[in-house]
Structure formats: structure tokens, C-alpha cells
Design a protein around this nucleic acid. Structure first.
Lengths: 198, 198
DNA sequence: AGTGCACATTGACCTATGATAAGAACTCAA
DNA sequence: TTGAGTTCTTATCATAGGTCAATGTGCACT
């Protein structure tokens, strides 16, 4: 039960098997079909999701109704709205399965409990936060500095696997451009024989 | 000595006077003239800076030589490159005083030691990280969703005080637009009697 | 007072990207 | 197999914002 998550956590955080056992009650595994919404805007996000298999994304919808992808989460990733979880505020985001997926839900209590019983977990959790900050910072820098094309190339180099699994309009949305623009960028790249694939 | 920082920390984190005393060795106060560079790109950032008075900013310089302001830090704020500090990597950023300032330097050791001796500090530190994430997320959302004008209005509502102290080209840089564009936005706003000031 | 410098504004022009619309390719369910 | 819904591409046109250059304005230093 929860094998992949256990492997993940034990390897990364260094908590012990025993400690993990005692956290079992805070875990819940679920199969979810493509299209399932795990978090709704305006709801307080009470769980984080470890993706055992499949692929999730988080996104916002702005006033004019446009979606903006915040994050993709393939197998072995965790996805959530940290701010909503931590500060107990209504979320601005949606979390949705874009492939049929198996997901492990873990609650605030899981994190609280794990932090309580394991210094290793606390360290790991801080590393996660720091990493998240680094990644957000990177994204801001690219949004400020880079053209659509550069952002796309950056995306490819960071998430080569996702290229093949995610519809292009979602990638465009993640990059902050329209699908049409992305299409143009790709055409241009192909013309210059920079084509990364297909 | 370090009075304002002490007040700040004790109030916010809830560490005790005594605990603060024991952290003294890790603190250093400095007067720095306008224009001083506290962190250079490619250097590992070994300290964080609490601004006692004055105003600092962090920024990057891209390949084409353009500056991009990451953050402003007026009195009572902390500025640093967390990723560089935490992961011990060379920084991508500069930190500079844009007014003559008084700054309290605190090292990694300060944080390590404080975390060691005080659970309150650990909690506070986590809250800081979570807050940082929330703020970065907000900025990403605005970069993805909003026009130059909307971003400017957002900036005003969040940092009304900075409007008066920071040269406009730096605000433009923070918003991800050129000074000329910002000037046009302001003109447009004034025409519509939306002028927030001057 | 005068010189110089940083900053802000303005105007003319340019370019990347958005909007719209139409069609092609694909997927999937009946 | 058909047909309806996606997704992707392509073309045309529109626009926000960038670039460049000139001018203004205030302030600091001599």
C-alpha cells in the first residue's frame, strides 16, 4: 500500500519505515479518471496530491475566462496549492487530471504529524519549499526576459517528457502565449531545423 | 544594538530575548551608501539582509544587458537570494542599495543556529517561505494575465509607498516593461483621471 | 549661475504576439 | 462509418508594447 509514495518519501526525506507506518492513517489512494477536478477555485485546499501514475495540472481562470496553467505534475510529483493549504485560504486555482491517474492524497495533518515525529522530514519539507521558490523565481525570470520562442525551448529542455503527453494549447497556456503563437514558434523552429521532435 | 531587528524578530517569530542574545555573534550592522552592491552575480550569497533604514533592491541582468528588478526591500524587509543561500549556488542576482541604508547582515549560521535553539523560529521561518511562495505565485499570475496598466495598478496598491521613492524606470523594470511604456501608461491613466498622485 | 547627468516624456515607427476565422487532422463514441 | 468534438495549423488583420531619437526637467556639484 502506498508503495511508490513510500519509496519516494523514504528515499528523499530519509524518514524510517516505522515512521512511515505511523503516518498511514493520513494517506488515501485513489484512481481518478481523466478530467476529474481535485480542487475547485474558492475551495480551501486541504490536501496535497502525490501522483503515482498519470498526469495532473493546476491552472487559474482569469476574469476574461482564459485558463493559465500553473504547473504540470506527472508521476512522482506532488501538486497542491501550498498557500491555500498553509494559510487556510480559498484557492485561486483548479487541479485537474489530464490523464487517468492514481493519486495519493495527504492532508495537512500528515505534514503536521510527519514534521512532529521526524527531523528528517522537516528538513526535507524545507528543501521542497526552497526548491519551489527557486523554480518560481526561474519562471518569473523567463517571463520577464525571454521571448515566446526562448520560453518554449526552455520548457522543452526542462520537461522533455511532457512535450509528448500534454496538448499544445496547455503548453502555450503555461508559457503565457496563445496556441496560435506557439504553433507559429514551432513552425519557425522547424524551418530552422531546430525541431526537437515530430 | 540591532534593536529594530530584535523587535522585528521577537514580535514576529516569538523567540525570547535570551535566545536573541545568544544569536548576537551572527549579526553585523552596517551603514552603506547609496549604490553599494551587497551581492554580485556569480557570487554565492552567504548573508541575508535586514533593512533597518533605507531601500535595497535585487535585480538580474540578462544576456542583452537589460536589468530586471526582482524585489524592492524598504525598512523592515529582508532581502537575499534564498536559493543561493540555501543550495550554496552562485547567484544570478545583484543586490544594491538604492538609498543610503542601514543594514543588518545575518549569515546562514544565524538561521541554522536559530532553527536549532527555537521551535518558534522554525515556524516563523516556514511562514516566511510560504509567504514568499505566495507572493511569487501572485507575480507569475499577473505576468501571465494582466496588461501593463493592470500590473502597474497592482503595484501601486501593493507598494504605495515605493511609488514615491523608486525611480520610474526601476518600477517599469519590475513590471517587465520599458520606462517609455510605463510613461505612456501613466499618461493614459492621468487622462482618465485615475491619477493616483502627481 | 552654469554645466552635466540622471530621469521622464513624447513622437514616429516597428515587431511580436493576440484575435478572428477557416480549414485540416485526429479521436472517439454511437 | 459517420459525425461531433477537439486540437493544430494557417492566413489576415489589429494592437500592445518595444525601439530609437529628440526634448524637457530637475538636481547635484563646481
Amino acid at each position: 500500500m502506498f508503495l511508490s509514495f513510500k519509496t519516494y518519501l523514504v528515499e528523499r526525506s530519509g524518514i524510517s519505515d516505522l515512521e512511515f507506518q505511523s503516518l498511514h492513517p493520513y494517506l488515501k489512494e485513489k484512481e481518478i479518471p481523466k478530467g476529474t477536478i481535485l480542487l475547485q477555485k474558492r475551495a480551501v485546499c486541504t490536501h496535497s496530491f502525490f501522483v503515482e501514475s498519470g498526469l495532473l495540472r493546476s491552472y487559474s481562470i482569469d476574469q476574461s475566462g482564459k485558463e493559465h496553467v500553473i504547473q504540470f505534475a506527472p508521476e512522482g510529483w506532488i501538486i497542491t496549492d501550498r498557500s491555500s493549504v498553509f494559510f487556510n485560504e480559498p484557492s485561486d486555482y483548479y487541479i485537474e487530471a489530464i490523464e487517468p491517474s492514481t493519486v495519493i492524497y495527504f492532508s495537512n495533518d500528515f505534514i503536521r504529524k510527519a514534521s512532529e515525529i521526524s527531523a528528517a522530514f522537516r528538513n526535507y519539507n524545507e528543501r521542497l519549499l526552497q526548491n519551489h521558490i527557486r523554480q518560481l523565481q526561474h519562471r518569473i525570470q523567463f517571463l520577464l526576459e525571454a521571448t515566446a520562442e526562448e520560453r518554449y525551448l526552455d520548457f522543452i529542455s526542462i520537461y522533455p517528457d511532457l512535450l509528448l503527453r500534454v496538448p499544445q494549447w496547455m503548453i502555450a497556456s503555461y508559457l503565457g502565449i496563445t496556441p496560435e503563437s506557439l504553433s507559429r514558434v514551432r513552425k519557425e523552429l522547424a524551418k530552422r531545423h531546430f525541431s526537437p521532435r515530430n
